[in-house]
Amino acid sequence: MTRKEWPLWEVFIRGQRGLSHRHVGSLHAADAEMAVKNARDVYTRRNEGVSIWVVEAAKITASDPADKEAMYDPAESKVYRHPTFFDIPDEIKAM
């Protein structure tokens, strides 16, 4: 039989209710259901989570770091998107 390696899965864990899932690492599993179980055993041994997502690594579409300038630099000139851009008089308390 030709050897076939189990696919790689990326694991995302919600640390507690109210927080979003965060990437914690990866692991191998034959399918998604097994990946969830393995993630439970590998990545939540110290009460790290209340919910697990797994995504097959090969199925993730990522941006190309070579496009970094075109992708992210234009945002740098839009400083008005940040609240600190605006000076509000001290007399106006909460805004």
Partner: peptide, 16 residues
């Protein structure tokens, strides 16, 4: 462990 790794992969493929 080879038979276990192969079998779990085979099962997953069969079911997919």
């Amino acid at each position: 462990g080879a038979w276990v790794r192969d079998a779990l992969m085979a099962h997953a493929e069969k079911h997919a």
